[in-house]
Structures are given as structure tokens and as C-alpha cells.
Amino acid sequence: SKDAAQYVYDEAQKGVTQVTVNGVTFKFDNWQKLLKYAQKLLN
């Protein structure tokens, strides 16, 4: 959902490398990768 994507995006902006959405945890090597993933979700 857009809300989940926005949440992931906001978390990535904080510099975190993992985020949990609806009980599913996504882990990334660095926050830039998390940010890229979030941007994909938002598009």
C-alpha cells in the first residue's frame, strides 16, 4: 500500500537499514538501498 511505502520511505530517511511492515521485516546492507526500495514502492 502507499501508506506502507511512505512509512518505509520515512524510515529510510532516518538512516535505518531495516524496517518492519505488516509483520514483515526487510533488511538492507545500507539505508540507501532501503531508500531505493521505498522509492520503487512509491512509484
Rank of each mutant, 00 (worst) to 15 (best):
1 S>F: 12
1 S>T: 11
1 S>K: 12
2 K>Q: 11
3 D>E: 03
3 D>S: 03
3 D>F: 10
3 D>G: 06
3 D>P: 08
4 A>P: 13
4 A>F: 08
5 A>R: 02
5 A>D: 10
5 A>P: 15
5 A>G: 06
5 A>Y: 05
6 Q>S: 04
6 Q>A: 05
6 Q>F: 03
6 Q>V: 10
6 Q>D: 15
6 Q>L: 09
7 Y>I: 15
7 Y>K: 13
7 Y>W: 13
7 Y>G: 15
8 V>W: 14
8 V>Y: 11
8 V>N: 11
9 Y>G: 14
10 D>L: 11
10 D>P: 09
10 D>S: 05
11 E>L: 13
12 A>H: 09
12 A>I: 11
12 A>P: 08
13 Q>K: 09
14 K>L: 10
14 K>E: 11
14 K>D: 13
14 K>Y: 04
15 G>F: 11
15 G>V: 10
15 G>N: 13
16 V>L: 10
16 V>D: 03
16 V>I: 06
16 V>C: 15
16 V>M: 04
17 T>P: 05
17 T>Q: 05
18 Q>M: 07
18 Q>I: 11
18 Q>P: 03
19 V>F: 04
19 V>K: 02
19 V>C: 15
19 V>D: 04
19 V>P: 08
20 T>E: 09
21 V>E: 13
21 V>Y: 01
22 N>M: 15
22 N>Y: 14
22 N>T: 14
23 G>Q: 03
23 G>D: 09
23 G>E: 12
23 G>R: 10
24 V>S: 04
24 V>P: 07
24 V>W: 12
24 V>K: 04
24 V>R: 05
25 T>M: 10
25 T>K: 05
25 T>I: 12
26 F>M: 09
26 F>H: 07
26 F>N: 09
26 F>P: 10
27 K>G: 11
27 K>T: 08
27 K>A: 15
27 K>V: 15
27 K>L: 15
28 F>W: 10
28 F>M: 07
28 F>G: 01
29 D>E: 10
29 D>S: 10
29 D>M: 07
29 D>R: 04
30 N>L: 07
30 N>W: 15
30 N>P: 03
30 N>H: 11
31 W>A: 00
31 W>E: 00
32 Q>P: 06
32 Q>D: 04
32 Q>Y: 08
33 K>N: 05
33 K>F: 06
33 K>G: 02
33 K>L: 08
34 L>A: 01
34 L>T: 00
35 L>M: 01
35 L>N: 00
35 L>A: 01
35 L>P: 00
35 L>I: 04
35 L>T: 00
35 L>C: 02
35 L>G: 00
37 Y>V: 03
37 Y>G: 01
38 A>D: 00
38 A>K: 01
38 A>G: 01
38 A>H: 01
39 Q>D: 04
39 Q>S: 02
39 Q>I: 05
40 K>Y: 04
41 L>V: 01
41 L>N: 00
41 L>Y: 02
42 L>T: 01
42 L>M: 01
43 N>M: 06
43 N>I: 04
43 N>L: 05
